[in-house]
Nucleic acid binder design. Structure first.
Lengths: 321, 321
DNA sequence: TTGTAAGCGTTATCAG
DNA sequence: CTGATAACGCTTACAA
């Protein structure tokens, strides 16, 4: 492998000069510059990035911690990160954690080991303080809201509230919700919105552990077996909404007449099923998170709230008198 | 940042011994090993990966070139790669190219610059020989079939043929197809399967540039405006199938009575819409590609064909006599 | 404008 | 079993 010293010998200059040419530094005579460039093509030189990284102490790489790369909204965040990273000359390493704590530790370790300049935490199961202990090694940006932490997030409280109020404005009084992981920050905020906005007498209308299409189908069966059931449901995701709708239709129920359903995410599924849904600009979240991760004001713990929007579909309409 | 030399000083041994302890080498006396370990905890030492990489000449990282991280099937391949990479102690860098040639060049450059030990090309627009020129720098594994190239792929010819034969077995004689990027390897194989299997008189039943849900809707409109139209359609992806079905239902047509539709991919969309589809195990493709990329027999250009399976749904059924 | 030489933090060779 | 010491390939004071 030809290196910078071979180049120097070939071009009859010093390694410093070669390095200067390589990095477009000023103060290099035109003839020497050309000599170096000739040497580069003649010897087929290719710069070794690892050596650059060791020398500069920067990797120009940021790490991304997420549970599943193939979940639509995580992938959408990744998309935003990918766009900006490329534009800014950065690379990104992705770690899929499956929400396993030890896997998340590995990612934090990578930051400590200088494999990445910074970290974007899309979602996590480790306690926040434990993650923050690694902030001494570089910026850590969350895609969820936490106090005293760099984060780009949507307000799950107001987002859920907008869904609930929409259902109320349609005349619904018996409203239920689906929540994902029971003790996640997001679920807590959503539940709070539910309690504040709907103040339900019956807590059996909170369906937990709603993550997949299959979970949705389960919930639908649960619903149809209940003696006292809600007339409207704000779900945790479009996937869950899809599962509910499909199972209920299979059982002969009509949507939204028998049950009004609102999804969450604004995914492809919502388009296909004409779902009413709370649309989340995940790509924007990724973009903003990236820029915080590479900016030097990350120590101020900037917080950026990204607005959501209710997207009208056909699965939730006004109740007829 | 404390380094291996500080450790040596603290433990009163040589750097070599420290390195041996760090790498679990044999031939280290128990007392010295312990002394080093104590120094590590006392000084809060964390190994610098970049230095290891420079010294060993290995990055334990593989690169992934793909057009879009958030397209379901590419994400599924990524998922497979992510699983294996983690298990094997590897990391992976993802580059989203948007099929832009210059972006793809950047990725190849990264391989040449030793940023990654190997490359998995999920999909590309650059000519294969141009990509292969970089094989001198490390393994390049394709997720598409090409001659004399390491690859893990599905046989688009037989996969498409299975879809077409299914339609024929249902009594359809007027069959059309949708193709994605016109001059991709995959599209060519699919078109060939169409010509060999259906031998259509009318070539106006080949719908090009079918990639998204919206493209599907366009095709549906095109179809409904045709005087002579197919009774069945094998589409390029579940997304396209979804677009077609939704638009057609909106126009009052019935699926599969007015038009039988088969999707491709076996995605979530297929589940939601009860699509008949050609299911592709994308995750498996990712896993296998990864293992070729890190194995040392990649120079033999191993080729692995992954089988597909027809998944029955409700959008293509037997034509009534 | 140019060059010398000292890092960056490891690993690996080779002699003890 | 242990330790000097030379790589790995680049950047960057500092000096000229």
């Amino acid at each position: 492998m030809t290196n910078i010293r071979d180049l120097a010998r070939e071009a009859e200059v010093s390694v410093t000069t070669v390095s200067r040419v390589l990095n477009d530094h000023p103060y290099v005579a035109e003839d020497k510059r050309r000599a170096v460039q000739d040497a580069i093509t003649k010897l087929g030189y290719i710069r070794n990035q690892t050596a650059v990284q060791l020398s500069t102490g920067q990797t120009k790489t940021i790490g991304v911690m997420l549970p599943y790369v193939d979940h639509p909204y995580h992938a959408a965040i990744l998309h935003g990160i990918a766009q900006c990273a490329f534009e800014e000359g950065y690379r990104f390493l992705t770690w899929q954690t499956n929400y396993i704590a030890s896997h998340e530790q590995t990612v934090l370790q990578a930051l400590a080991q200088r494999e990445v300049d910074g970290l974007i935490v899309v979602s996590h199961s480790l306690p926040v303080d434990e993650i923050l202990r690694y902030e001494q090694y570089g910026p850590i940006v969350f895609c969820e809201h936490h106090e005293d932490v760099s984060s780009v997030y949507i307000n799950h409280y107001t987002a859920f509230q907008s869904g609930l109020k929409t259902l109320q404005s349609f005349g619904h009084t018996q409203i239920g919700i689906c929540l994902g992981r029971p003790d996640s920050t997001n679920s807590r905020a959503r539940k709070q919105a539910y309690q504040d906005t709907v103040s339900p007498e019956d807590t059996s209308w909170i369906y937990q552990q709603a993550l997949t299409i299959e979970d949705g189908a389960d919930i639908a069966r649960q619903w149809s077996n209940q003696s006292c059931r809600p007339s409207a449901l704000l779900t945790a995701s479009d996937h869950v909404a899809a599962g509910i709708i499909l199972e209920l239709r299979k059982q002969g129920y009509r949507i939204p007449e028998d049950l009004a359903v609102i999804g969450f995410d604004g995914s492809d599924l919502a388009v296909v099923l004409n779902l009413t849904t709370v649309a989340v600009p995940y790509e924007t979240i990724g973009r903003q998170a990236f820029f915080i991760a590479i900016s030097d004001n990350w120590r101020d713990h900037p917080q950026i709230e990204i607005p959501t929007a209710l997207l009208s579909g056909l699965t939730a309409v006004k109740v007829k008198e």
